[in-house]
């Protein structure tokens, strides 16, 4: 009886070793066959429809673009636990130019080979210019609600506008506006191009 038990256990050990060897050799054979298994968590988003909500005709001429990146952080203190902290880096492109919808009536008049143009003031063409797809979460500790993230977005936006809408940048955009508009109307055949650019308030 003892011998039968011993033989039984030895056979069990042999089976386990053989199973391990077989699994290892099967993997190599399976690699050459169109058969593969993957087990893991899904990292990609689901396929969902893209909805074109609106198409709007606009007339904006951009003369200066400014890429900017700001880092915004926020902290929430707690009495009995470490402070929550969130740091995000926002990226945006501010576009300075003119909006033709703000032009007065008769802003462009031509007489012979002379054209006179009254352009509206240089302004920021987009109210929303931050690309949240390029936003990076640099550091996060704790949980954060919607209001905190909205507040961080607005702070980033305000800082970018302050850095972009400087008198120097506006002057540079105006100079480029005169240069580009003059080049366009000279291409249209006008020898004398008189340009007046409105002043920003």
């Amino acid at each position: 009886m003892k011998y039968i038990k011993g033989i039984f256990w030895l056979m069990a050990i042999a089976c386990v070793i053989y199973a391990g060897y077989t699994l290892h050799s099967c993997r190599q054979r399976l690699a050459n066959n169109p058969m593969g298994l993957e087990l893991g968590f899904q990292k990609e988003i689901n396929q969902t429809p893209v909805v074109l909500q609106s198409i709007e005709r606009i007339g904006q001429w951009e003369f200066l673009s400014i890429d900017d990146e700001v880092m915004v952080d926020t902290t929430e203190s707690h009495l009995l636990s470490p402070d929550d902290h969130l740091v995000r880096i926002y990226h945006g492109t501010l576009r300075l130019g003119i909006d033709f919808s703000l032009c007065d009536r008769g802003w462009a008049t031509a007489s012979g080979d002379t054209v006179s143009l009254r352009l509206p003031p240089i302004q920021l063409l987009d109210r929303n210019f931050i690309d949240e797809a390029r936003t990076r979460s640099f550091y996060e500790y704790g949980t954060w609600n919607v209001q905190a993230k909205e507040d961080m977005y607005n702070r980033a936006r305000t800082r970018m506008i302050q850095r972009a809408m400087t008198p120097q940048n506006i002057k540079q955009a105006e100079d480029n506006a005169r240069h580009q508009v003059e080049a366009l109307f000279r291409s249209l055949g006008y020898r004398v191009v008189r340009i007046t650019v409105g002043r920003s308030s």
């Binding site: 298994l37 087990l39 968590f41 689901n46 909805v51 198409i55 606009i58 003369f63 200066l64 130019g97």
Partner: peptide, 29 residues
């Protein structure tokens, strides 16, 4: 951090696109 470049672009149309991004974090085989 900031890059300033002169442009001469006439924007003629604006498109607004909406999408709901969904993700399900399930163990998948």
């Amino acid at each position: 951090i900031s890059r300033i470049s002169q442009q001469s672009r006439l924007y003629t149309a604006e498109y607004r696109v909406h999408k709901i991004v969904t993700h399900e974090d399930l163990l998948k085989l």
